[in-house]
Amino acid sequence: MEELAGTTVMIHPKLTQDPINMQGCVGTISNVLYEDCASYVNFGLGHFGVYNNDALLMLMPTEVALGKLPNDIDAMDLDPSEVLDIFRISILNESGIPEKQETALRLALASPVISAAIVFTVQDWVDFQIARLDQQQNPGRGR
């Protein structure tokens, strides 16, 4: 499974219970607790929080987002400007520069259509990765 440490995430803006009040703030995953479905998020300057993976929003990796884009264009009736925005957001996210990744995430979340196409929760990503691993395994035969 791909490592999520270093991934830029946003705390869901509508999170109802957040003991450190970081709803809508962007941080970086420092550690994932897969068994607990939670992650440590670093907000900088010594501010950390532990969040349920369903409360953490992230951009799909570019290869996934662009791989499903042809289907999304039809299924979601994306117009050309939205497709172009998805490419631009993906390029910003691929830069590896935290400030550009934050901008990319905020731009994606500003549009409900684009958000539906390329933003998901960390838990969605973990589940996607597990499903992908399960599909890659071939059943063995015992003799």
Rank of each mutant, 00 (worst) to 15 (best):
Q17N: 15
H12R: 07
V83K: 04
Y34T: 00
A55D: 15
L56C: 11
L33M: 10
G44S: 01
N138W: 04
D54E: 15
I29E: 13
A131H: 12
I118W: 08
Q137N: 07
N71C: 02
L45K: 05
T7F: 13
V122Q: 09
L4A: 11
R141W: 06
I11V: 10
Q123I: 03
T103G: 06
T7G: 11
M22N: 14
E2T: 14
A75S: 11
E94C: 03
E2W: 13
I91T: 01
F128Y: 09
N138K: 11
I73T: 00
P80G: 12
D72E: 14
L92E: 04
L78A: 02
L69M: 05
K100C: 09
L107R: 04
L84N: 15
W125H: 14
A131C: 08
D74G: 08
V64W: 04
S95G: 05
N31W: 13
N31E: 15
V119L: 07
R143H: 09
H12D: 08
G46A: 03
V26P: 05
S111A: 07
T8S: 09
I20G: 05
D127E: 14
P19D: 15
F120P: 14
G142W: 05
V32F: 11
G96L: 00
A75N: 14
F87R: 09
A55W: 14
A108S: 09
V32G: 11
R143I: 10
V119G: 12
M76G: 11
I130S: 14
I11H: 14
N42R: 10
I73C: 01
L92G: 01
D72F: 02
S115F: 10
N53G: 07
A110G: 10
A117F: 05
L133S: 11
N53W: 00
N42C: 01
I91P: 00
L84R: 13
I130C: 09
P139V: 02
M58D: 05
K14T: 09
L57Y: 05
R132E: 05
